[in-house]
């Protein structure tokens, strides 16, 4: 009995001593450490997105099949590329516009919500072309970043300073304040300038750009040609605010990526409109006295911050013919 009690006491004493020789469980960490890189995409992620996009474009280009645009290319980019493939398949048709694979800068947003954007500036494809500005959009967490549009930079234009991956760029709404004009208003004014021509009150508001100069020059030529045939030439220009995305810049301004649809109606009263041979593959329907050229353009506009001395202006734009129809 005594020995048993002694044994129990001894063992219990040893265990009691042991319980006291282990440190307490450490206190929990109640505050999350700060995120070092707040951009939605870091360089390895954006590189993967760009590489997969270029691979998809290369595969589609090789087959000249827009059906191969599945994950990484979507929206107007598919429509535009499909038209280019259509032209390329015809005898002597132009090759699709080269999209340079190498990028010189990638800009990610630090947004917590969707949709989010990613922008990149490529290198020049050749000496005669300018770098291409590309836009990717992610609609939700479950969707891939998808390239929705691209545009060649306006000669002489520059992309403003953008934030790096530490904070990312702001994802702004089209009605964002703190700019010389809201992105929506800026686009509205610019389209009004495109409609009205050089005589528009907004001609001096926006910096000069080769995009509108070429549009005005073409309009003048075609209007004159239509007049000679007792017809007319009318441009109908519409923006697509729903698919317009705005990315903040490091200086408080914004880059506005806006798809624009332009329908150029050329009509004659005493004859039939003749379509150029290289454009024939895009003809839809029977063209008689009216031909409507449909363009899907991508504009990238810089809107400086409120109070800035900079001038609003288009920094990249492409004029893409996708269809010729009779209405």
């Amino acid at each position: 009995m005594n020995r048993r009690v002694l044994g129990v006491i001894t063992g219990a004493s040893a265990l009691l001593l042991l319980t006291g020789c282990v440190a307490d469980v450490p206190a929990p960490v109640t505050e999350a450490p700060a995120l070092e890189q707040e951009a939605a995409l870091l360089e390895p992620q954006s590189t993967r997105v760009v590489e997969e996009t270029m691979a998809e474009i290369a595969a589609a280009d090789e087959a000249q099949d827009s059906e191969l645009f599945t994950d990484r290319v979507g929206g107007n980019a598919v429509t535009i590329r499909k038209a280019q493939y259509t032209l390329a398949k015809s005898d002597g048709g132009p090759a699709p516009v080269t999209v340079p694979e190498n990028v010189q800068a990638v800009y990610s947003v630090g947004a917590d919500t969707w949709p989010r954007t990613l922008a990149a500036v490529t290198e020049e494809a050749d000496e005669d072309s300018t770098p291409v500005v590309m836009l990717w959009v992610q609609d939700s967490i479950d969707a891939d970043y998808q390239m929705r549009g691209w545009a060649h930079m306006i000669p002489g234009a520059t992309i403003p300073a953008m934030s790096g991956t530490t904070s990312g760029n702001a994802q702004l709404d089209v009605d964002a304040e703190g700019l010389q004009a809201t992105p929506e208003q800026a686009m509205s004014d610019y389209l009004e300038l495109l409609r009205s021509g050089t005589g528009s009150e907004f001609n001096d508001v926006f910096a000069a750009d080769s995009y509108r100069e070429q549009l005005f020059a073409s309009r003048a030529t075609l209007s004159e040609a239509a007049s000679e045939a007792e017809g007319e030439y009318v441009d109908t220009i519409q923006s697509d605010i729903e698919n317009t995305y705005v990315m903040g810049t490091a200086d408080g301004g914004a880059l506005v990526f806006a798809p624009v649809t332009i329908k150029s109606a050329f009509s004659v009263s005493d004859g039939a409109v003749e379509i150029a041979d290289e454009q024939q593959p895009l003809v839809s329907g029977d063209i008689e006295d009216v031909a409507v050229y449909t363009y899907v353009d991508t504009l990238v506009m810089y809107v400086p911050a409120e109070g800035s001395d900079e001038q609003m202006g288009v920094v990249a734009a492409d004029h893409n013919l996708i269809k010729i129809s009779d209405s």
Binding site: A32, E36, I141, D144
Partner: peptide, 27 residues
């Protein structure tokens, strides 16, 4: 099933994966 664009770092293994916590970027 969904996009993997938002994943930053990745480790994988068969039947088990072990990740040194210090290799997970803070935050």
């Amino acid at each position: 099933l969904t996009s993997s664009d938002h994943w930053r770092e990745q480790w994988s293994g068969v039947d088990r994966v072990a990740v040194p916590a210090a290799q997970v970027p803070p935050g």
